[in-house]
């Protein structure tokens, strides 16, 4: 379904090259996916397993969601104050969109959240949404607050310091 005009593709490539060259840490962009992992239905279990035994939060967001931008900043600051506070991000912006993914990677890299960052992979978005949570209907930001036992609580809406205090 992606049909990029060859000329547009060339411009994208040029712009990406320019961005990468200008980025603070070019190595983060070395991988084809700009450090972002492709989110698939089985990724939910993978994320839970890799953070087993400690509380963490999963933020589902997108570039076009304003409340998500604020939420990312608040989470990043909270983690800076509490280095043990793990943050996983999943953006619904498709990884197949190279230009958009570069912007996602740049955004997350700027607030030091690129280490555990996922982008929607190739399947239909509703399929991936369903894998995250059959009861979630796409409103963003959506966050999942896991405790040390792996139990999670879902929350829709902007993330504030008070919310982090309450949910952690």
């Amino acid at each position: 379904m992606k049909m990029l005009h060859p000329l547009a593709a060339a411009v994208v490539a040029t712009a990406i090259a320019a961005l990468s060259a200008l980025a603070a840490s070019p190595s983060a962009y070395a991988a084809g996916n700009a450090g972002l992992k492709a989110f698939a239905p089985q990724s939910v279990e993978q994320i839970a397993a890799s953070h087993k035994g400690k509380p963490f939060v999963v933020l589902v967001w997108s570039m076009d969601c304003e409340f998500c931008q604020h939420s990312l900043d608040v989470l990043s600051k909270a983690r800076a104050a509490n280095p043990g506070f793990d943050i996983v991000t999943i953006t619904t912006d498709p990884l197949s969109d190279a230009a958009l993914s570069q912007l996602v990677a740049k955004r997350l890299s700027g607030i030091d959240l690129l280490a555990d960052a996922w982008s929607f992979g190739g399947l239909a978005p509703e399929r991936l949404r369903y894998a995250i949570d059959p009861r979630w209907r796409g409103e963003k930001p959506r966050s999942y607050w896991y405790d040390a036992q792996g139990q999670r609580v879902a929350y829709s809406g902007v993330i504030t310091p008070a919310l982090i205090e309450k949910m952690r």
Partner: peptide
């Protein structure tokens, strides 16, 4: 980052998004 590069990026990004919808 030069402003021009960012703007080019955004317009190109928007064009790419529009083409794939």
């Amino acid at each position: 980052m030069p402003l021009l590069a960012l703007q080019t990026m955004n317009l190109t990004l928007l064009a790419a998004l529009a083409a794939s919808t």
